[in-house]
């Protein structure tokens, strides 16, 4: 029960490019990545695309399908009507290398800027002991497959290239939250989140959460809790005084 679909694929490189029309066969059960592969096998053998697992777990095949940031391997053709034109473009927040392949090294740069896990002094790897209730929040963030769809969609950098330097992005806010909530991490990450990683630039409009293929509650469970933790140390004078008076530490 195949049909012929109208496909528009962005082709080009960092100097120029545009949308190219194709008519291509689609069979039942196929996903967008299958169609891109069919184009490679037929009309466009030099079409560049990055992929690995075809199972939504490697995070390589991120692109934009009809303007929506998605994993190509997880976007079923059955979600489009048969006469709909399906437009596939590379991620629009990162420099393009060729066709559907972008240079996502911005994200690796940001990953390096986050101070790594800091266990208490004297506790060696292998001696880490913690309770499930204490790590469960951090575990949600470990589901991340680093597809960078959230980074690509976040308007703070998507619409403002100049913010890239100051803004770590949602994927790294969940990393900060993961570590700050971790029962064995002793480093205080609250001030850094605001002052070095740009948490304050996020206006919690939730697009990162909307596009995350792992359904991580990026905004509700990481960004907002981190904003509250930042407020504890930076914007809550009453709490500081109260903690002083009762000589309690937070």
């Amino acid at each position: 029960m195949g049909y012929t679909s109208k496909f528009r694929v962005w082709r080009g490189d960092d100097t120029d490019g545009g949308l190219v029309d194709f008519e291509v066969e689609v069979n039942e059960g196929e996903v967008v990545l299958d169609i891109v592969h069919r184009l490679q096998a037929t009309e466009a053998p030099d079409l560049a695309v990055r992929w690995n697992c075809k199972a939504g777990k490697c995070g390589s095949c991120s692109a934009e399908v009809n303007g929506r940031p998605r994993l190509m391997c997880m976007t079923r053709m059955s979600t489009f009507s048969q006469d709909e034109v399906v437009t596939v473009t590379p991620l629009r927040a990162f420099p393009v290398i060729k066709d559907l392949v972008t240079d996502v090294s911005f994200n690796y740069q940001k990953a390096r800027e986050i101070p790594s896990f800091a266990p208490p002094v004297g506790v060696e790897p292998g001696d880490y002991r913690m309770q499930q209730v204490d790590v469960q929040r951090s575990q949600e963030f470990r589901k991340c497959i680093e597809c960078f769809l959230c980074q690509n969609t976040c308007h703070v950098i998507r619409d403002h290239e100049e913010n890239k330097e100051a803004f770590a992005g949602p994927r790294y806010f969940i990393r900060l939250a993961e570590l700050d909530m971790h029962p064995l991490d002793v480093k205080d990450r609250r001030r850094g989140a605001q002052e070095e990683h740009g948490l304050g630039m996020c206006n919690i409009t939730k697009c990162c959460t909307d596009v995350c293929p792992e359904h991580i509650h990026i905004t509700d469970n990481a960004i907002i809790p981190m904003k509250e933790r930042v407020a504890d140390v930076k914007y809550d004078p009453l709490k500081r005084i109260l903690l002083k008076i009762t000589s309690r530490d937070d």
Partner: peptide, 10 residues
Amino acid sequence: SVNAPGRAKI
């Protein structure tokens, strides 16, 4: 904007 230099020209 979303059309910063180096990005896919759309």
